[in-house]
Design a protein around this nucleic acid. Structure first.
Lengths: 334, 334
DNA sequence: CGCGTCCGGTTAAACGTTTAACCCTACGTA
DNA sequence: TACGTAGGGTTAAACGTTTAACCGGACGCG
């Protein structure tokens, strides 16, 4: 590989001069600039990042730690992060923690060893103290001492609730996500607040973010007792649709269903799933942006940014005209 | 950060000795070993990879270049690659080429600059000459001069064809993928060979790997003229199902549909999609394994490994008993 | 005319490793 | 006893950068 020394020799200057014109550190005569540039072009010089990192003590490498790449939530996020990182001149080391706190710590340690400039981290669970030698931006889960960017889950819940009451639903079934996850809790609260005094919660279960429904929930769905089910998740919502069908309910005619996330195939299931779209790409670019800022100036105050979400209405909450004429006589809400 | 020098001082030996005991390069007395180990533990030494790379000329970093992370094909692949790479002591730099040959070249160049030990590459298109300063393993697309690992697309096609004729289908509609992609061509040939002399191709169109069907295909689906449609892709197959439905055909009773890939949600659409599962995880671990081998010994002969695929039968090709009996009436499930 | 200053350039040290070359001591053997 | 040797350790060079310190000449100014 061609090095600074080669360029220096070819251009007839010292390697310090080459370094300076490459980085624009010190001025040089047009003469010299030209000679150096020409040599670089001709020999195809590209700086050795390891030497640079060794010397300067910092690298243009970012780390990314996510719980599970195969979760449909992540690909779009990772893509956005990678794209933005590369645009800012970073290179991205990706690690999958496999939803395991141990492997996660391992990953963060490894990244520390690699002297990354910073890391974007989607923690497997909330709330853990930590102290790493690089700046961190967490996505979707607040961690003490880190910048955070998250979707506005509460708003998402509220959108769902408002949509439900606007459609005239008065008895709602709730499958809320793990209470210990802030995102799940916020969604839940958003829903509850927005239906307060208008609709009631027919039943509620706390379920894991998975498409396998606990048996008591399956039983419940046989005799729904509500006109709309809110899933904590698109995966959950789809499972709900399937079980409702098997139990003989029609969706959305008998029972409407709504999810959360807007996974890529939410539009492919039948009926298309009404859900809340998270701004995955924006979350990603935002995270990298914040990280970049903090790397540039470690003294900037901690930030907690939350990004707006969007309700995507599809067939799973469609009501026929007949039904509107039938029981949607009560006034709409905000 | 604590360095070799710190350990040397703490243990009362030279840094060369520390290096030697760390890497086991040269023997040392138990005495010294103990002192060094203890110092390492106590101070928390972790080697600086940049210094190592600079000195040795090679790094424990692998590159991964994929066309589009949001394509449901990739997450499982990437996850497997990352896991295996990490298990082998590598760290993975991921780059998304955005399905753009230019950005792809850019990415590969960048990786060259980073002095990666090797790269796993899923090219955006087939067949291009190249010469990079690191070993490469391509996935799913053969590139001259590279090791390659791919799913057995021909076998996949054959499984589909065999399944079709076994179910009694005699007129088949074919939506084959871009002819310039070897994988698409192989799938197509696999199907054709296996139905040869038994069933006939009612019609065939070459379509892009996307869920938007060309208008002539949409028109064709209004008047199917076949009892089974083979999509080049799950995305395509799902689009087919949708259009068939809109045109008034029942799936699978009137027309059966089969896809390829077994994307994660193939089981979530209605009816569940019969498709061919690619061994994504195995492709990934295999690729890293081959890369690792070649890095260790660059002289090993080029390999082309192809991995078996598997037919996953779901409802989209289910035939009722009545139909088997040759009866036109339906005896559908509840 | 002489002095300070700025400008464009060079020299050399330093970052943290690895590793070839060397050195000393103890030991086995002639 | 003397000598070769192997084992366990050290010294120092090198990897490719960046950057502080230095240097010589041209130039402006009193």
């Amino acid at each position: 590989m061609v090095t600074l020394k080669d360029i220096a020799r070819a251009a007839g200057v010292s390697i310090a001069t080459v370094s300076n014109v490459v980085n624009g550190t010190k001025p040089a005569t047009p003469q010299v600039q030209r000679r150096v540039q020409e040599a670089i072009e001709r020999l195809g010089y590209v700086p050795n990042p390891h030497a640079q990192s060794l010397r300067t003590g910092h690298s243009r490498t970012l780390g990314l730690v996510v719980p599970d790449l195969t979760n449909p939530y992540f690909p779009a996020l990772v893509q956005a992060i990678e794209t933005r990182a590369r645009a800012l001149g970073y290179v991205l080391i990706v690690m999958d923690s496999g939803n395991d706190a141990l492997r996660e710590t391992e990953a963060l340690t490894l990244l520390a060893g690699y002297r990354v400039a910073g890391v974007v981290w989607v923690p497997v669970d909330d709330a853990r103290p930590l102290d790493w030698p690089y700046p961190i931006v967490t996505v979707d889960r607040p961690v003490r001492g880190c910048d955070t960017v998250a979707a506005d889950h509460a708003q998402g819940g509220a959108l769902i609730g408002a949509h439900a009451v606007a459609l005239g639903h008065r008895r709602i079934g709730l499958l809320s996500g793990p209470r210990h996850l802030q995102s799940a809790t916020l969604r839940r609260i958003g829903v509850l607040r927005s239906i307060e005094g208008i609709a009631e919660v027919a039943w509620e279960y706390e379920v894991p973010f998975s498409s396998d429904l606990p048996s008591e929930v399956q039983a419940q769905l046989c005799e729904p007792g509500c006109s709309l089910v809110v899933g904590a998740n698109d995966a959950i919502a789809v499972a709900v649709i399937r079980h409702l069908r098997e139990a003989g309910s029609r969706v959305p005619d008998d029972v409407a269903v709504v999810g959360f996330d807007d996974v890529p195939w939410a539009d492919f299931v039948d009926p298309g799933l009404t859900t809340v779209r998270q701004p995955l790409a924006e979350l990603g670019t935002s995270a990298v942006g914040m990280l970049h800022a903090r790397i540039a100036d470690p003294a900037t105050p901690l930030q907690q940014r939350t990004l707006p979400v969007e309700l995507v209405v599809r067939r799973s909450t469609e009501r026929s005209m007949a039904e509107f004429a039938g029981d949607a006589t009560e006034g709409a809400a905000a």
